[in-house]
Computed example of a mutant assay.
Amino acid sequence: MKKLLIIGVLSLLITPLAQAQFGIKGGLNVAELTGRDGESTSYRPFYHVGAFYEANLFGPLSIQPEVQYSVAGGNLKSAFTNYDSKLHYLTVPVLAKLTLGPVFVEAGPQFGVLLSANQSGTMQVGFTADGKPAYGNESRPATSEFKRNDFSVVGGVGLKLGGSLSLGGRLVAGLNDINDAKNLSGINDPRLQNRVFQVYAALQFGKK
C-alpha cells in the first residue's frame, strides 16, 4: 500500500513536467516607484530577461513558474530633488495561465530579491554648516536604502503566434513597503512600492 502511494505521488509530480514547455523570455519594463510625501513620480524604461516552464494541469489551465532578472525603479522629484532609482531584482513569478485558442490570460504572485540598487541625479548629499540639508548632483550605490524582499501580484494577457513564439503584457504591482532609508529629512513615506508594466516576447520549447 505504501509503495502504491509513493508511486501515485511521483506520477502526479512527473506527469506535468513531462508535458511542460520550457522557454526563455525577455522584454521591456516601464517602471515607477510610488512617491513619498512631497515628491512626484514618473516612469523610467528598463528591461527583464528570464526562463520559465509551462506545465499543463488540466484542459486549458496550466501553471507557469519563472525566474527573471528584472530591473525596476523610477524617477522621484520634489522642490529640491530630481533623481532616478535603479533596482536590480531576481524575481520568481508563479502564475496560473488560462489559454483559449491563441489568447491566454495569466495571474499570480511574484517574489523578488533585491540584488543591488543605485541612484543618480540631484539629491541630498549631506548638511550645511548650520545643519540645513545640502543638495547636489551625485551617482551612488543605494542598496542599503531598500528592503531586500519584494512581494507583488501579477496579471497579464498574451497571444500565442505561429510556432513557439508568444507575445504578452503584464502589470506587476508591488504590495509591500520597500523603503529602508533611515534618514530622509521627513520625507520617509512607509508606502514606497514598485509598479512595473512589462511587454515581452517568449520562445517555448517542447510539446504540450
Rank of each mutant, 00 (worst) to 15 (best):
Q110M: 06
F58D: 15
Q193L: 04
L165G: 07
G168T: 01
L90I: 12
Q68W: 04
E145C: 12
Y83F: 10
S120R: 13
Q193Y: 01
T128G: 00
M123I: 07
L167D: 00
D189R: 11
F127W: 08
Q204W: 02
S78Y: 10
P93T: 07
Q204V: 05
D189K: 09
G186W: 12
N179W: 04
L90N: 07
G136Q: 00
I187N: 05
L165R: 07
D177Y: 03
R191E: 13
G35L: 11
S78F: 05
S139T: 15
D37P: 09
L95A: 07
G74R: 03
L167N: 04
V92K: 02
G73S: 15
L161M: 15
R170F: 01
L33G: 02
H48R: 15
Q19Y: 13
N56K: 13
F58L: 13
S62N: 03
Q124G: 02
L12H: 07
S139Q: 11
L61F: 10
G23M: 06
Y89M: 04
L13C: 15
Q64N: 08
V49M: 09
A142Q: 00
V196C: 04
K160Q: 07
L87K: 02
Q193P: 01
D180K: 14
L17V: 12
V30I: 12
L5R: 05
M123Q: 02
